[in-house]
Amino acid sequence: MIEIIPRNIFRFIVLVLIQVLILNNIEFSGYINPFLYVLFILLLPFETPAWLLLVSGFVLGLTVDLFMNTPGLHAAATVLMAFVRPFVLRIFAPRDGYEPGTFPRIFYYGVSWFFKYSALLIVIHHFFLFYLEVFRFTDFFSTFSRVILSSVFSIILVVLSQFVMFRK
């Protein structure tokens, strides 16, 4: 159980590096920028205390902000995502709850569960992120299309990464 902490710290660093060094240089058609780093929050164990979720969301967002010249923006979105994660987990819980010793991954709960769980959280995160960045509701639909397009790409990356990271 104790090895979970270094493993998560390692995952944190790798995800931030992938985000900053590779994904931020991808610009499909000037609209889409996938944010894979939220995978860190998605994969934290079920037993993570809620306050730790919030704090790690804040630290993760701020770290990404440092590299993207957007101080506070990603931090705010990731904290919101960390805050709603327990509620989302409760909504999609299997009938007899989550078994102890398991993690929120495809391997334990299947593709369909993981897809629903990550899609909802990623859309919440991206929605908040893009509207905060624009900070106005004129051009509502143009921002909305950016939210949806970027979410789709992030979700695809998150789900695919599961098959790369945990091969069984």
Binding site: L54, F58, P71, G72, V79, L80
Partner: peptide, 21 residues
């Protein structure tokens, strides 16, 4: 309600950083 307060506090800090610029 410490969770809600913690959440609000972190959001306020983030937004303050964001808008200060």
């Amino acid at each position: 309600y410490y969770l809600v307060f913690l959440f609000l506090a972190l959001e306020v800090v983030s937004l303050a950083i964001f808008f200060q610029r």
